[in-house]
Design a protein around this nucleic acid. Structure first.
Length: 695
DNA sequence: CTTAGGG
DNA sequence: CCCTAAG
């Protein structure tokens, strides 16, 4: 009855409904376009730097005088957070900073003008995303060539600076473009594209390109603690960081403010330079993280999206752009050093033991091409077997365990430094092993010869890879047990490790490609390897991942946890792990707006609803609105006693019901019409057929 | 990308 | 909110 009564007034408002929707092509133009962000690259680089650090440590294997104040200012993410990694005598500056920082600066300046509120909006997931994107990119690129057998590695340092120059035949043009773009065009293009030459931008730009260290320019202080800062402030003494399964990602900033990027997004869009992680992208990343996405190269195509030409625009997966091959075609200064052992090993200069992990910018300029780190795996790349029994290969990179660092935005810069420091130190402190991967499987038997292991034939060297693996000396992570019962504390005795395994004889058939069924289920997580008892858990976990995908060599998430170098806040980690957006209950006013919009537009045009009522509320996607409507309808149907959360005024619920009823009916009609139309067609065809038959 | 719907 | 199939 009540409903009936409402009908009268309710439907009046629905007249608008007949407004035809604009053609999609038009509508799309309105949409805010988001592009890949440079910061992602930065994250990549930071990671890379860490990797490089590892390499360095490995090679030097000497005591570190952790005293000097090598101050590499690495700007990470949109955070105007300068990260000072103090380590060793060698500043972690250089490459990492150069490129990205300028964006950082831009952002910063913009913030200053706009609103310091936005400071909190810097996001971390972006970093994650980029990393993955980049890596994925590599993989997908290579995949074109090698089909299943690819692996990539975290590139040490100069990824963006032409590290891959040496041998890119096997990689896709996009990848070249990536190199190329980053190398020379990124920033400039951005500027040109935007025609913006605001002073800060210019300054930042040039300065960053020339002297990374200048990047420590003053940023607006992160003020805003009044809103959305839900994390307890973290004091220096307790770095709130954690390693989680986020691969290769360094997270900085608060965790639950994804959406707050929106505003930032808009800001940065002005420069067409950066963009916040889209939900979609997040999802992609997440998907990517999901094991199934590591099964093989074909699945990685999503990530072709990534484009590295300064992050100006994303490459869409379907787009295949083949250009600029030459540009990326290196004046490869592949510095080769031959080590005459049993085999001749050609390493790029940046390889292990070279100690040139951290090139100075100048050095990079001249040598970066030689310090590529990615293990060539594109087949005909640098790997080939000489006519004699020597195996020649180049090591462009090592995989390293990823670091996942997370600190609340309320954490101080100092604590951030410390956190990173701890992470790196712990990692290095654990002693690093080099692992050999062949055809996606770890070759554990050190006594085997190369030929015995099958690492000899010309065509399979591309399936050879190396990894850096943390040694067993690493402290056990405090969080293994809770979230991942299967994870044993890192310090756990080897026996424990074995006990969870179900295939105790694996190591005897390691080179056997047939012995690697996908291990995707949880129960099998730790079952794959029967490594020597001296192996670290990490090894095991790594293997597990490898067996999932021999094509892609990636340190599995578990690995990180096993490493768990940095004390982590479990709660944070947990939520972060889920990568789920923070729940944002709709306020009454929001509901009102939603109802209003739906009344006018109907229930089948969520995008329009979004545009109409929530255009400036970036954290409300049309899917959100749709979902909210769904729940609203549900809420309206249930008794008030069963409702939870902030009570929605009955008046609104009534409107919801009304609108729902109306639009349901409307949709039904549409369907009916359509159906009828179809029927008519069918009928007429039948007639014709009938006639035909009759004739 | 959007919609629609299940989870 | 997330995920996905479809379009």
């Amino acid at each position: 009855m009540v409903f009936k009564k409402r009908l009268d007034y309710g439907f009046d408002a629905f007249s608008v409904s007949n407004v035809p929707r604009a053609p999609r092509s038009i509508r799309r133009r309105v949409r805010t376009k988001r592009t890949v962000d440079d910061n992602q690259i930065c994250a990549f680089k930071l990671l890379a730097s860490l990797a490089g650090k590892l390499l360095e440590e490995k090679s030097e294997s000497s005591a570190v005088s952790n005293v000097s104040e090598g101050h590499g200012n690495v700007s990470i993410g949109k955070a105007v957070v300068k990260q000072e990694i103090e380590y060793d005598d060698k500043p972690l500056k250089t490459e990492c900073v150069e490129h990205l920082s300028c964006k950082e600066s831009v952002v910063a300046s913009d913030w200053t003008t706009e609103n310091s509120d936005n400071l909190k909006e810097f996001k971390h997931s972006e970093n994650n995303a980029i990393l993955k994107c980049t890596l994925a990119k590599m993989q997908s690129s290579y995949s074109e060539q090698t089909k299943g057998d690819l692996k990539f590695a975290i590139c040490k340092d100069n990824v963006a600076y032409g590290s891959f120059h040496g041998d890119l035949e096997g990689c896709s043009p996009n990848f070249r473009e990536l190199c190329d773009g980053i190398r020379d065009n990124g920033v400039k293009r951005e500027r040109e594209a935007n025609g913006l030459e605001s002073a800060p931008f210019t300054v930042a730009n040039s300065c960053s390109l020339k002297d990374p260290l200048h990047l420590s320019m003053p940023f607006p202080a992160p003020i805003n603690t009044d809103r959305d800062v839900k994390l307890p402030s973290c004091n220096d003494s307790v770095p709130n960081a954690s390693f989680s399964r986020h691969r290769n990602s360094i997270k900085l900033g608060s965790r639950d403010d994804d959406e707050n990027f929106s505003r930032f997004n808009k800001l940065s869009n002005r420069f067409m330079a950066s963009r916040p992680p889209t939900r979609i992208e997040d999802q992609r990343v997440r998907k990517f993280l999901t094991s199934k996405y590591w099964k093989g190269a074909p699945e990685l195509k999503d990530f072709e999206n990534f484009r590295a030409d300064g992050g100006i625009r994303p490459l869409h997966r379907k787009r295949k752009t083949y250009y600029n091959y030459d540009k990326c075609q290196y004046g490869t200064l592949y510095k080769r050093r031959k080590l005459f052992d049993h085999s001749s090993i050609v390493t790029s200069d940046g390889g292990i033991g070279s100690g040139s992990v951290f090139n100075s910018p100048e050095k990079v300029k001249n040598e970066n091409k030689s310090s590529s780190v990615a293990m060539s795996h594109g087949g005909q790349q640098a790997s080939h077997k000489s006519s004699d029994s020597h195996v020649k290969l180049s090591i462009k990179s090592f995989r390293i365990p990823e670091l996942y660092i997370e600190v609340p935005e309320s954490a101080t810069v100092g604590s951030l430094k410390r956190t990173v420091m701890e992470a790196v130190t712990a990692l290095l402190g654990g002693r690093i092993h080099v692992g050999v991967l062949f055809q996606g499987k770890k070759v554990r038997d050190d006594s085997r010869t190369l030929s015995q292991s099958g690492i000899s034939s010309e065509d399979n060297l591309d399936a050879l890879g190396f990894t850096l693996e943390p040694g067993p000396a690493i402290a056990p992570p405090p969080l293994c047990s809770e979230d991942h019962p299967l994870l044993l504390p890192c310090g756990a005795a080897p026996q424990n490790l074995t006990s969870t395994r179900t295939t105790p004889a694996m190591d005897t058939k390691i080179p056997d490609a047939t012995a690697d069924p996908p291990l995707l289920t949880n129960s099998e997580k730790a079952t794959d390897s029967n490594y020597k008892h001296t192996s670290s858990q990490t090894d095991i976990l790594t293997d597990q991942k490898l067996s999932e995908s021999r094509a892609l060599v990636l340190v599995p998430a578990m690995n990180v946890e096993a490493l768990s170098v940095v004390p982590a806040n479990q709660k944070i980690r947990k939520s972060e792990l889920a990568q789920r957006r923070t729940r944002r209950p709709f306020s009454v006013s929001e509901v009102e707006a939603l109802v209003q919009a739906v009344e006018e537009l109907g229930t089948g045009r969520w995008r329009d609803v979004k545009l109409r009522a929530f255009e400036n509320v970036d954290h409300r996607t049309y899917v959100d609105l749709k979902d909210k409507w769904k729940t609203l309808v549900h809420t309206a149907k249930i008794s008030p006693q069963q409702r939870r959360g902030e009570p929605v005024p009955q008046e609104l619920l009534d409107r919801v019901m009304t609108a729902h009823a109306y639009w349901s009916q409307y949709q039904a009609k549409q369907q009916g019409k359509h159906h009828i139309r179809t029927l008519r067609i069918t009928a007429s065809q039948a007639d014709r057929n009938g006639v035909m038959v009759a004739i």
